[in-house]
Amino acid sequence: MRWFGLWLAFLTWPTWAAVGYTTIPAHDQVGTITLFYPSVTPEQPMRRGEFIMQLAEQGGPVRGNGRLVVISHGSGGSPWVHSDLARALVEAGFVVAMPAHRGDNYRDDAHPGPESWTLRPAEISTAIDEVGRDARFAPLLKLDQVGMYGMSAGGHTALSMAGGRWSPALFKQHCEADLEADFQSCVGLATHLTGGMLDGLKKWLALLIIRHRFDDDKLREHHDPRIAAVVAGVPAAADFDLDSLRAPRVPLALITAGQDRWLIPRFHSDRVLAVCQTCIHLVHLPNAGHGALLSPLPPGLSGLVGDMLNDPTGFDRSQLPQVDQAIVAFFSQRLLP
């Protein structure tokens, strides 16, 4: 594991007593917002699906460091797969908000890819608005400087929030040029190449659908002046106008995985790092796959999902608390006085 920023070892911060959990209901502009926050209420075991976590459900909030970090989940994702990072952030005093992205979450996966990517940045801004309107948290937070973390499709959102511009037509151009080499990022979980006689048909059909659905060349961009620091983990990035990421408008850090077979680094994160003049390569995990930053990783993944997200042989998950602390340190340095 290569680390950037050895000062991390010298940072210290107070630890709050417990991690609270609550939600803000969905409405037509954003899905349910899950919140993790400093609390004085004792933690208890809480089950959500296959996950069992120690949390203070509906615990009374207490003021931490006064700052909010918003997390954007990956395609089909849930809050629970980022709960270890959320705990690390809360223990450093942050409040963490995770909006469920409409049409691309674990309960509703009807519109993944560019359709969801178009909506996600505004959903991040709406989540900040909703937290600011919530009587439980508004008195505890200053929302003039907010941190934002995203992984995979959430990493695409993170790059957008840092000032990146992209378009569906650029997504189409990438897939026309590199469909076979970056097949899964172009088609998602619809199918995969096996080396068999049907691969030609799969590629032809994939391009037919992509060319039909993603020919809009209008550049998407979203500006929220409250976002003051961004971390993008294994981001989808092949459809960005790279000029827009040469000098991001806020501090931008990337986390990369050398064995990522879902978003092949040379088409995604490596392109951003090659052009960005101010980006910080916060952590590189040479033996990690695409699912490394899911922590905890859902158990029992099989089939194509398992092939893409399960850890490669030799990857050591004991590194992940250090990765979380690197993210905490990045936000602490840039958001706190």
Rank of each mutant, 00 (worst) to 15 (best):
Phe4Ser: 11
Phe4Ile: 05
Gly5Glu: 08
Trp7Gln: 14
Phe10Ile: 06
Leu11Ile: 13
Trp13Gln: 05
Val19Phe: 02
Gly20His: 01
Thr23Trp: 00
Asp28Gln: 06
Thr34Gly: 00
Val40Ser: 15
Val40Leu: 06
Thr41Trp: 02
Pro45Lys: 10
Gly49Gln: 10
Ile52Pro: 01
Gly59Ala: 00
Gly60Met: 10
Arg63Lys: 15
Asn65Ser: 06
Val69Met: 02
Ser72Met: 12
Ser72Leu: 12
Ser75Met: 08
Ser75Phe: 06
Gly77Lys: 02
Trp80Ile: 02
Trp80Gln: 06
Asp84Ile: 08
Gly93Ile: 13
Val95Ala: 04
His101Tyr: 05
His101Ile: 13
Arg102Glu: 14
Gly103Ser: 07
Gly103Lys: 07
Asn105Cys: 08
Tyr106His: 13
Ala110Val: 08
Pro112Thr: 04
Pro112His: 09
Pro112Ile: 11
Ala122Asn: 07
Ala122Lys: 10
Glu130Asn: 14
Gly132Gln: 08
Asp134Thr: 10
Ala135Ile: 08
Arg136Phe: 12
Asp144Gln: 05
Gln145Tyr: 01
Met148Ala: 08
Met151Ile: 03
Ala153His: 05
Ser160Cys: 12
Ser160Met: 12
Met161Lys: 11
Gly164His: 02
Gly164Cys: 06
Arg165His: 15
Ser167Leu: 09
Ser167Ala: 15
Pro168Trp: 02
Lys172Ser: 15
His174Ser: 13
Cys175Ala: 13
Asp182Asn: 13
Phe183Ile: 05
Val187Cys: 09
Val187Gln: 03
Val187Arg: 04
Val187Tyr: 04
Thr191Gln: 09
Leu193Gln: 01
Leu193Tyr: 03
Leu193Asp: 05
Thr194Met: 04
Gly195Asn: 07
Gly195Trp: 13
Gly195Pro: 03
Gly195Leu: 12
Asp199Arg: 00
Asp199Cys: 01
Gly200Ser: 10
Lys203Trp: 03
Lys203Pro: 04
Trp204Phe: 11
Leu205Cys: 04
Leu207Asp: 00
Leu208Glu: 04
Ile210Tyr: 01
His212Pro: 02
Lys218Asn: 11
His222Asn: 12
Val230Ser: 04
Val230Ile: 07
Val234Lys: 03
Pro235Phe: 12
Pro235Val: 10
Pro235Tyr: 12
Asp243Cys: 02
Leu245Cys: 03
Arg246Tyr: 07
Val250Pro: 07
Ala253Gly: 06
Leu254Val: 09
Leu254Gln: 04
Thr256Asp: 12
Gly258Val: 14
Gly258Phe: 14
Asp260Leu: 05
Leu263His: 03
Pro265Val: 13
Arg266His: 10
Arg266Glu: 15
Phe267Asn: 00
Asp270Arg: 00
Arg271Ile: 13
Cys276Phe: 01
Thr278Arg: 15
His281Met: 07
His284Asp: 14
His284Pro: 03
Pro286Met: 09
Asn287Leu: 15
Asn287Asp: 15
Ala288Ile: 04
Gly291Thr: 07
Gly291Trp: 03
Ala292Ser: 08
Leu294Asp: 01
Ser295Glu: 02
Pro298Glu: 01
Pro299Asn: 07
Gly300Lys: 08
Asp307Val: 02
Asn310His: 09
Gly314Ile: 14
Arg317Val: 08
Leu320Pro: 02
Leu320Ser: 00
Pro321Gly: 06
Pro321Gln: 10
Gln322Glu: 01
Asp324Glu: 09
Ile327Pro: 01
Ile327Phe: 01
Arg334Tyr: 14
Pro337Gly: 14
